[in-house]
């Protein structure tokens, strides 16, 4: 078995939320007890709605945020114990690609400077290659002409900007990309271009991906393993095949129903069994976090929090009734 490149063990993250001068702060549990492994060269997809903790996990993996408890290991090293220099080294292996290419690129510098910045910061140059040649090569790898390097971000379309962001991320030959909603700001006809580009780059450069998205269709297209997050906890973790064919958690099923209507067949049928909205993580429900919205919740779900348990060789579910949800 390949070693996991990213390895999270029972990770918690709580924020102290101040609520006015005279009221005591309260703990907001953004991530509570998350464990997963991403084998080198594979893609792990994190799906969840807003407030599910998916971006918090990304920030902890990137070392931008420390876990409250538990361990985040990247390439075998525990991120928490790294010193400044080691942290700098970690960032060479791990690069983020963010959601909005309109705000993640500095509008005042040219594409060339955007793409070669990591090269300059990390002092990486291929032997006998000028920065300019390297930038041209990177742009070509992401499907842009070398001429693009003289442009400013505002001269580019959303899809082109996201390509620039990807070129920047792969410039220093990282081993892993953390992709936080990489296509959700793009038009539908452009999304597929970027998803396919990411797939090709992964194959060519043997990259590991941690992909974060609210769209289960995007995640299932890209990922080998999928983790479904709700209020900072995994409801279900499974291989792509198991999620597609055999999703067991009512929340996973709801997410699937929401994004995958069989076009032309379900016309006129709207409405799904899931009620209400994601509760505030400041006052999470008792028992199963999903029970207030779950169409099959029973008394037990209100009292007792279901543990994540194995349902198959590559399938874990946190539901008391996983056997009978289909």
């Amino acid at each position: 078995m390949t070693l996991p490149f990213i390895d999270l063990q029972d990770v918690h993250k709580a924020y102290n939320v101040h609520r006015g001068v005279f009221r005591a702060g309260k703990l907001l549990h953004a991530v509570s007890g998350v464990s997963f492994r991403v084998p080198e060269g594979s893609t792990f997809g994190l799906v969840g709605e807003s407030g599910s903790g998916k971006s918090t996990i990304a920030r902890m993996v990137l070392g931008a945020e420390a876990a409250t408890s538990g361990e985040v290991r990247v390439a075998g090293q525990s991120v928490a114990t790294l010193d400044r220099k080691q942290r700098f080294q970690l960032r060479r292996m791990l690069q983020p690609v963010l959601q909005d290419p309109y705000s993640s690129l500095n509008p005042r510098i040219r594409v060339a400077a955007i793409v070669d910045e990591p090269l300059r910061v990390h002092r990486v140059t291929e032997h006998g290659q000028s920065l300019k040649d390297r930038v041209a090569q990177l742009l070509e790898q992401v499907g842009l002409s070398a001429e693009t390097m003289r442009r400013y971000p505002n001269e580019l379309s959303g899809g082109q900007r996201q390509r620039v962001a990807i070129a920047r991320a792969i410039s220093i030959n990282p081993r892993c990309l953390v992709l936080d909603e990489p296509v959700s700001a793009l038009d539908v006809s452009i999304q597929a271009q970027i998803l396919n580009l990411l797939k090709d780059l992964q194959e060519r450069l043997r990259l590991t991906y941690l992909l974060i998205s609210h769209d289960l269709a995007v995640v299932s297209y890209m990922s080998d393993q999928i983790g479904v997050l709700y209020l900072g906890q995994f409801m279900e973790i499974a291989s792509r095949e198991d999620i597609i064919a055999n999703a067991r958690h009512p929340y996973t099923q709801a997410l699937m129903a929401a994004v995958d209507s069989t076009i032309g067949e379900e016309v006129g049928r709207v409405g799904n069994a899931v009620q209400g909205e994601i509760p505030s993580p400041l006052s999470p429900p008792s028992g199963c976090p999903f029970h207030p919205r779950c169409p099959m919740a029973e008394e037990r779900c209100r009292r007792e929090k279901p543990a994540l348990r194995a349902f198959g060789p590559s399938h874990q579910v946190a539901c008391h009734f996983a056997e009978s949800t289909r």
Binding site: V188, A192, V218, I244, D260
Partner: peptide, 15 residues
């Protein structure tokens, strides 16, 4: 060009 769960094995054909 739209990813769909039921067809996620097939490669998307972007415009």
């Amino acid at each position: 060009a739209i990813p769909r769960i039921s067809k996620s094995g097939d490669r998307l054909r972007p415009i």
